[in-house]
């Protein structure tokens, strides 16, 4: 039975293979063929030559990317923002999940969870509209409130130093409901016998939270955090682009690799530079995700990606 050979297997699995064909074609066209296009990073692109006919220019694109100082700036911004997001978002989500589980009643929990999950469902464009409503210099709510209590209005869209705080808050706001649901599920899975034992030993609720609930969340936390660290060089384009847009005044504090690549491609039309930056990001991202996965695998084999 097993000695039918490759073509025998193809015949045996022909229906299954046909059922896979659309997906295989999809990923070939939208993922694997473009991977071959990374040669562009080493080329001087022109429209006549296209991806494969344009002349080579060695490492010129990379040299330009690194010597302009942009490479360091966008890499630093991307990594620092992602680190801040990982820390702030997880702490808030865990705190919310614990309090939702331990401290509040059923009805209150359901209603507040519905509210907290809402930001997850709206597009980044709408978040951009909300930011406009809050931060616009002339009519924004923030300045309305500041002037009402006698303070000077702040010019958020022209002041880079506010943006790290704003973006961290926005990220926390958008992911709170989503993340707390995951942690809530993890808390629900904790063995209740542990709680009963703690009860008998006379532990108060705070001791119980810090000695039982939180330590039991470590596996979930560590895995989610490691996977997020694997993506530390991937910026959330939708967020940065809709919050900041093409506002060059803010780039020193807000430009991430993804927005830089996008602008180089669409605004300044520097295709070689954009491809080089994209290639740099892919390689960096690939290396970090392998490292992160190695760490997950060491920690808990079952949760490793591969």
């Amino acid at each position: 039975m097993n000695r039918r050979g490759f073509w025998g297997d193809v015949r045996k699995y022909r229906t299954l293979l046909l059922m896979l064909a659309p997906a295989v074609l999809f990923f070939l066209v939208f993922a694997y063929v473009p991977m071959a296009g990374i040669v562009l990073a080493f080329k001087q692109y022109n429209y006549g030559g296209g991806i494969f006919g344009s002349p080579w220019n060695g490492l010129d694109n990379f040299r330009f990317f690194f010597e302009s100082g942009n490479a360091w700036m966008v890499t630093r911004n991307t990594a620092l923002y992602n680190i801040a997001f990982i820390i702030v978002n997880n702490v808030l989500q865990i705190a919310a999940a614990i309090l939702l589980f331990e401290a509040v009643g059923k009805w209150f929990r359901k209603i507040s969870q519905t509210f907290m999950f809402l930001p997850y469902f709206i597009s980044w464009v709408v978040v951009g509209a909300i930011a406009y409503n809050l931060f616009n210099y002339d009519v924004g709510t923030l300045n309305v409130m500041l002037t009402a209590i006698g303070l000077e209005p702040v010019d958020i869209y022209n002041t880079p130093s506010y943006w790290p705080f704003i973006l961290v808050l926005v990220s926390a706001w958008k992911t709170l409901g989503y993340g707390s649901v995951m942690y809530l599920a993890a808390i629900t899975g904790i063995d209740t016998e542990m709680y009963e034992a703690a009860e008998i030993d006379g532990a108060n609720v705070f001791q119980r939270i810090f000695r039982i609930t939180i330590p039991n969340l470590y596996p979930t936390l560590i895995i989610l955090a490691l996977l997020a660290i694997g993506n530390i060089f991937r910026g959330d384009f939708g967020m940065f682009y809709n919050m900041v847009g093409n506002n060059g005044l803010l780039f020193s504090a807000t430009d991430v690799i993804d927005t830089f690549v996008f602008r180089s491609l669409t605004t300044s039309n520097e295709i070689g530079l954009s491809a080089a930056a994209g290639f740099y990001q892919s390689v960096l991202g690939f290396a970090t995700i392998l490292l992160a996965n190695y760490a997950v695998r060491k920690y808990d084999k079952d949760h490793a990606l591969f």
């Binding site: 896979l20 296009g37 591969f306």
Partner: peptide
């Protein structure tokens, strides 16, 4: 093998430019 074929695309990509030009 096919699972890996699909999964690998989440680990590595050609970036925006080749995808866009494609």
């Amino acid at each position: 093998s096919f699972s890996f074929f699909f999964f690998f695309t989440t680990l590595f990509s050609g970036g925006l430019v080749p995808w866009y030009l494609m």
